[in-house]
């Protein structure tokens, strides 16, 4: 015998009630999902507006600064850097001949090793090629 045939009216009403509950729950979940998606759209839109504004500000700053810095670095590399490197090299050579000048040479990090032959200009003398690290700190007197 089929079970459905044995169902009495009470059971049938119970099934119908469960189905209605499920429908209501599904509708509630759908509403919740829609509300959450709308909330996420609002949040995402707010983030977009913030990022758009930040991006515009950064690009405006970039447009304003880039030519100046490029020109400054180019001038420095073309005019100052050779003179400075020559000056530093002469000071290092002088320091090797006059030990009393070595403290100044060492203070500014002009030589890597005391009495060594590896001479280096102060770190970051060439901003176009120098690492991002800051020059060697000058100790206080």
């Amino acid at each position: 015998m089929d079970n459905s045939e044995n169902q009495n009216p009470t059971e049938s009403r119970s099934d119908s009630s469960d189905l209605n509950d499920l429908r209501l729950e599904t509708a509630g979940l759908r509403q919740l999902l829609i509300s959450l998606i709308i909330l996420m759209i609002v949040l995402s839109g707010t983030l977009n507006l913030y990022l758009l504004r930040q991006s515009r500000t950064a690009r405006a700053d970039l447009v304003a600064i880039k030519p100046q810095v490029t020109q400054m670095v180019a001038d420095y590399n073309k005019m100052n850097a050779p003179v400075i490197n020559d000056f530093v090299q002469k000071l290092v050579d002088f320091g090797q001949k006059h030990p009393d000048f070595m403290p100044i040479v060492q203070k500014y990090g002009l030589v890597r090793a005391i009495g060594g032959t590896n001479t280096v200009a102060p770190q970051g003398l060439n901003p176009a090629t120098a690492p991002v690290t800051a020059p060697a700190p000058v100790p206080k007197k």
Binding site: I65, V73, Y76, I84, F87, Y108, P127, V138
Partner: peptide, 17 residues
């Protein structure tokens, strides 16, 4: 760019000292 500008200025200060 800001780092490059800062390094140029820092080097000038350093060489001045």
């Amino acid at each position: 760019l800001q780092v490059q500008a800062a390094m140029v200025n820092q080097n000038r200060t350093l060489i001045g000292a």
